[in-house]
Design a binder for these strands. Sequence first.
DNA 1: TAGATTGTTAATCGATTAACAATC
DNA 2: TAGATTGTTAATCGATTAACAATC
Lengths: 213, 213
Amino acid sequence: MQQVKKGKVSNAVIRRLPRYYRTLDAFYRDGIVRISSSALGSSMGITASQIRQDLSCFGEFGQQGYGYNIADLRREIADILGMNHHYSAILLGSGNLGRALLRNFRFAKTGFTLTAAFDADPALIGTSISGFNVRSIETLDEYLKTHSTSVGILTVPKSEAQNMTNHLIAGGVKGIWNFTNVEIDVGDSGVTVESVHFSDSLLALSYLISEKA
Amino acid sequence: MQQVKKGKVSNAVIRRLPRYYRTLDAFYRDGIVRISSSALGSSMGITASQIRQDLSCFGEFGQQGYGYNIADLRREIADILGMNHHYSAILLGSGNLGRALLRNFRFAKTGFTLTAAFDADPALIGTSISGFNVRSIETLDEYLKTHSTSVGILTVPKSEAQNMTNHLIAGGVKGIWNFTNVEIDVGDSGVTVESVHFSDSLLALSYLISEKA
DNA sequence: TAGATTGTTAATCGATTAACAATC
DNA sequence: TAGATTGTTAATCGATTAACAATC
């Protein structure tokens, strides 16, 4: 079910949701049936209060004296995360990182369906990667006209990031998953950008190990 | 110069530091000489207050009536981030994602030096990727004994994540950059783990686009 | 000098934790 | 039933923003 209570959900909560899902999914796969907020909390290293407070943004999923049914709560969180919308995604840039995603990333596990891959390199166009026929980036606009697409994945070179962003916006995507390490500008399009900044992550690690020395 | 004031720096501040660096580096490359906290703030979409508050954790880098010298502040933040320690890193798992990092990630830009790559696949061992001779994972322990290594990069399959973690810890690394999408356990070793969870990021995007619908 | 802008202290805002009545 | 555990309200803690004296 969708968000029962409206009222803006804080970013802190949103960032914890995928981890709740991941943890519950692991228990679910292990065949565990129920869990209390305090057991879940100690398995995740957070407080039971925080879990109950977080969940209360979306509804009431537990039962006094019992806790939470793992299968149910896992399903509720999947719903909250939008995993049942079966969003479609296309990948722009079939270089090394793009290929890594095509070959290794389990899109279906997050509810996404990867529907096409594009590249500008004539040597790649027409080849097959992990079952995907790589299309010419020249055909992107046409593709988006005929295939409603939820998310564009940007694994192109930095220099192409903004240009590709513009095409994705014009093509009506709802979100962009950005791996280019560049801040892209979506103007007032309302398109949501989620960036994975490898270098920010490595620099945070660098800071943390320096701090300890 | 190192952290002038001690007193725990909050995680929120740590996570902003790489972005400060990235932004200042861009201005620096554009040849801009000075910037005020308010100009920097509006270019980053945060308040001037926050920038001044954040920087005050580490020292005094500005000048009243002038603002900040970009080259100086960029250098100070690089220092704070530990970019001048020239940490060494080795990569475990030379599959698609490992190759993407070997070929595309500019380690030098973050102050790191990649010193070796390992894999378990006999077909890969001995081949060269982006100038790196892929070593047998069997030789990892020996390598770590003879080459002091700051960070291990985990791009191995999930199933190998914990085992490789144990070897890295025994080999004396200070940090692990974890791409396996599994929570790894470093016990009381004091080793710092920084994880890049692709699926958490995509699920957050999924939530955000669902919320808008 | 006068204007601009810092670093820091105080005020506000938001997020986390604690407490507890409700109830399975 | 008695014990366990929820959802929620209140208290605490921490992070962000505002204000301003100091000063370049």
